[in-house]
């Protein structure tokens, strides 16, 4: 079991070795994001820009005009919130091949709390024309995405989680943009998840099975582009869809699924994720439980949505 940030560090070093268009631009977080591997091994492929993310995005754009394909190393929140306007104008409007590696995105960021939790990144990046938005489930999916990102001609936002999760895929995984993955079959409900939350959702499906509820699990790692027909087909005749994400319930994966299904007369959609409030600094298990994203809390939420009896604590939020 390996953390995505470590995989990112290893893969970006490998890409930089083989492709001289690859540069890593860092905003003083190389040891956290693991860009330090490039800084140490290939200093010519590494550009330190200090704690100045807006400037870093502009510099990245300037480098693309000379054929470079820069990867930005910092926490997701400092890209998609702090440098949102720079991404909008210099990257999205110009379709520049800048790679935004949103480290530590989501709720879990090593007890840094709400100042560092990026829970709106999928909403804002989805709404950016030209932007590809990828949220890998585990170490294998991220590793498979990176060579594709390296060759893609437009801008890409990819979430890179801080901590390891139980893998969903294995070393044979092949990435295909837009594709949705059915990871578990079940007729009672379809759980649609993204990123490292999918690992916890599979566990939640196991808990539901103990209560006699059979949940299908669909993993969406390519929020944009997305194979809409593939998603509808994957959901099939499910009477209920519950989206689950380590992101605000507004306009992320839940928004995406609701947008697609609302146009097709699909089943009821319940969006589960971070409700409209700020979180706090605490250990991962505490946060997942309190904010409704632990396997137990997800299972309870699904059971509640189905009107079934739940063994866990009552869900009051989420």
């Amino acid at each position: 079991m390996k953390a995505q940030r470590n995989v990112w560090g290893e893969e970006i070093l490998s890409l930089a070795r083989s492709d001289d268009r690859v540069l890593v631009l860092d905003a003083d977080l190389a040891t956290s994001t693991q860009a330090v591997q490039v800084a140490t091994e290939l200093p010519d492929s590494f550009v330190e820009l200090g704690i100045a993310e807006a400037n870093m995005v502009g510099v990245a754009f300037g480098l693309t005009t000379l054929g470079y394909r820069p990867w930005l190393s910092t926490f997701g929140v400092f890209l998609t919130c702090r440098a949102l306007d720079q991404i909008r104008m210099m990257v999205s409007q110009t379709n520049a091949p800048v790679r935004l590696a949103g480290a530590y995105a989501g709720l879990l960021n090593g007890s840094s709390g709400k100042t560092h939790q990026d829970i709106q990144d999928l909403a804002t990046m989805r709404a950016m024309p030209n932007m590809t938005v990828l949220v890998p489930a585990d170490e294998f999916e991220l590793a498979a995405m990176m060579p594709w990102i390296a060759d893609h001609d437009g801008p890409v936002y990819v979430r890179v989680a801080r901590d390891a999760v139980e893998p969903v895929f294995d070393a044979d995984y092949r990435f295909s943009p837009g594709r949705v993955h059915v990871l578990r079959q079940g007729d009672d409900v379809t759980l649609v998840s993204t990123g490292v939350q999918t690992s916890r959702v599979i566990e939640a499906a196991g808990l539901l099975a103990e209560d006699g509820i059979e949940a299908k699990v669909v993993h969406v790692s390519s929020l944009k582009p997305i194979d809409e027909d593939g998603l509808v087909e994957a959901i099939g005749a499910s009477p209920l869809v519950v989206t689950v994400e380590e992101h605000s319930v507004h306009a992320g994966l839940g928004g995406l699924v609701a947008e697609i299904l609302s146009g097709r007369g699909g089943p009821r959609v319940v969006r589960h994720g971070l409700e409209d409030r700020w979180s706090e600094s605490a250990p991962n298990d505490f946060l997942l439980d309190k904010y409704g994203l632990s396997p137990r809390r997800v299972a309870d939420r699904v059971a509640q949505a189905l009107g079934a009896r739940s063994h866990g604590p009552r869900v009051t939020a989420g």
Binding site: V57, G58, V59, F61, L63, L66, D85, M90, T94
Partner: peptide
């Protein structure tokens, strides 16, 4: 370079100069 939202052009120029 595309510009309009103020304050961004020098960063872009710096990227070109570094490149």
């Amino acid at each position: 370079a595309s510009t309009g939202s103020l304050g961004q052009g020098l960063s872009a120029g710096l990227g070109m100069a570094i490149g």
